[in-house]
Design a protein around this nucleic acid. Structure first.
Lengths: 222, 222
DNA sequence: GCTCAAACGGACAGGGCAATCCGTTTAAGC
DNA sequence: GCTTAAACGGATTGCCCTGTCCGTTTGAGC
C-alpha cells in the first residue's frame, strides 16, 4: 500500500453521512426530551427517542453537558438576536419591553430553557461568547432606556436576571397549561415596576449576572 | 402469667425515651440536611447525620414525604401565624406588606422552604388544614387591602403564589450570600406593582393556588 | 437484677441510571 | 464488488439510592 493520502475517504473533518444524520436526530430528540421532561431525562430515553443506540449518543456527545449545550446553542443566539432587534426599535422603552417580553415568552415556550439551562450548566464554556453578547445587548438596552428616562434610574442588570429566574420558576411551577398566563402576569407586574415615574426606593440589587444564575446543587442556604 | 395489663410498660401511646430522643434528632438532622442540600439528600445521609441507623429512620418516618412534612410542620404554622399577625395591623396595606415581607424572609432564611416544600410534595395531606388556614389568612388580608383602596383591585390570590414561587427561585439561584438581597429586591419590585394607584392593565392571572404550586416532575411544557 | 418487648443498627437485596466494550453493519473510495 | 475504517447497537458492568430483614441492645416495670 502506498502512503498516498488518496485512500482517505474524505476531507479529514467531514463526518460520514449516517453519522451526520444521527447527530441531527439526537439533537432533535434531546431538544424534545428536555422541553417536556426537564434536564434529568435518562440518556437512554434520549437515545431511544432518536432511534439510535447508547454508544452512538455517547460517541457524539461524551458528556451530558455537551449535549445540552449543543441543543441550546441556537436558542442562545436567538436571545442575542432579540436583543439586537429590540435595540433597533427607536423607542427605548418599547425596545426594552420587547426584549423582556420576547425572552420571557421563549422561556415559556420551552419550559424555561434559558434559566433552566443556566441553572443546570452555569459553566458551559462554549457559550461564554454568546452569553457575553446577549448580556452586552441587555446592558445597551438598559442604558439607553435609562438615559431616555423611561426605565427607572436605579435599575440594575441583576434585575433582569431576577426576572429570568423568577419567570422560569413560575413557568415550571404552573399547573398544566397555565405557564404562559403565569409568565405573562409576572412579567407585566415587573415591567410596571421597572418603568420610571412613581417609583419607590428599592433595596440594593444582588450581585447577580448571567454567569451567576445557577444553583450550586449542594450547600448554600440563605 | 396473668392477663393483667399491669405489665404494660407505660400508657399505650407513649414512646420509649430513646425512641423520642431519636425522633427529635432525626427531625433536627433532616431539617439541616434539607436546608443545606435540598430535598434530594439520600436518606442514609440524614440517618448518619442524626447518628442513627437506617432502620430507625424508616421506623419513624416510613416515607420521605412524611419526614419532610413533619420537618416543615412548624414552619407552616409560622406562616399562618404571620398572616394572623398581619391581620392584626390596623393599616391594611402595611399588614399586607408585612405578610409578604415576612413570609419571603422565611423563605430566604431556609433556602426557600415553603415553595420548595410545596414544589416537592404538593399533596402532603397532613397539612391540608394548615395550608387552608394560611390561604384563608392570605385571602382575608388581600380582600381587606383591596377594600381599603391600598391594593390594586385586579390583584388575585394567584399573584401571591407567583411571588412565593418566584422568590423561592431567586433565593435558590442566587450565588452565595446574595439570596437575601435578591429576595428583598424582587419582593420590593412586586410590592410596588401590587400597590393601588398608577397601575396599568394586566393580563389575566393564572389558575394557581397554594395546592397548585408544584411542578409535575415530568411532562407539561408551555 | 431480671425479664421482655420495644427499639436499635447495619448488612443485604432490588432497581435505575451512567458509561463502556465488543461483535456487527455500513458508507466511501478503488 | 471489494476493502477498510468509521460508525453502529445493545448487552454489560459498576455505582448509588431505596427500602427491608434479622440478630442485638436497651429502657421500663416487677
Amino acid at each position: 500500500m502506498s502512503t498516498r493520502s488518496s485512500r482517505l475517504p474524505a476531507a479529514p473533518g467531514r463526518p460520514r453521512s449516517d453519522a451526520a444524520r444521527n447527530r441531527a436526530r439526537l439533537l432533535q430528540a434531546a431538544g424534545e426530551a428536555f422541553a417536556t421532561a426537564g434536564f434529568d431525562v435518562p440518556m437512554a430515553a434520549i437515545a431511544r427517542r432518536a432511534g439510535v443506540g447508547m454508544a452512538t449518543l455517547y460517541r457524539h456527545f461524551p458528556t451530558r453537558e455537551q449535549l445540552v449545550t449543543e441543543v441550546f446553542a441556537d436558542r442562545f443566539q436567538a436571545c442575542a438576536a432579540v436583543a439586537d432587534e429590540a435595540f433597533a426599535d427607536e423607542d427605548p422603552w418599547r425596545g426594552f419591553c420587547t426584549l423582556v417580553t420576547k425572552v420571557s415568552a421563549m422561556q415559556a415556550a420551552d419550559r424555561g430553557f434559558t434559566a433552566a439551562f443556566l441553572t443546570a450548566y452555569p459553566d458551559a464554556v462554549d457559550h461564554e461568547q454568546a452569553r457575553a453578547r446577549a448580556e452586552d445587548g441587555f446592558v445597551r438596552l438598559i442604558d439607553r432606556a435609562v438615559a431616555a428616562g423611561a426605565l427607572r434610574p436605579d435599575f440594575a442588570v441583576a434585575d433582569l436576571m431576577l426576572l429570568l429566574v423568577a419567570n422560569d420558576a413560575v413557568i415550571v411551577a404552573a399547573p398544566a397549561g397555565q405557564a404562559p398566563a403565569a409568565s405573562r402576569r409576572l412579567v407585566a407586574y415587573l415591567l410596571q415596576s421597572f418603568a420610571a415615574g412613581h417609583t419607590r426606593p428599592l433595596p440594593p440589587p444582588p450581585r447577580l449576572r448571567l454567569h451567576h444564575v445557577h444553583q450550586p446543587r449542594t450547600g448554600g442556604s440563605g
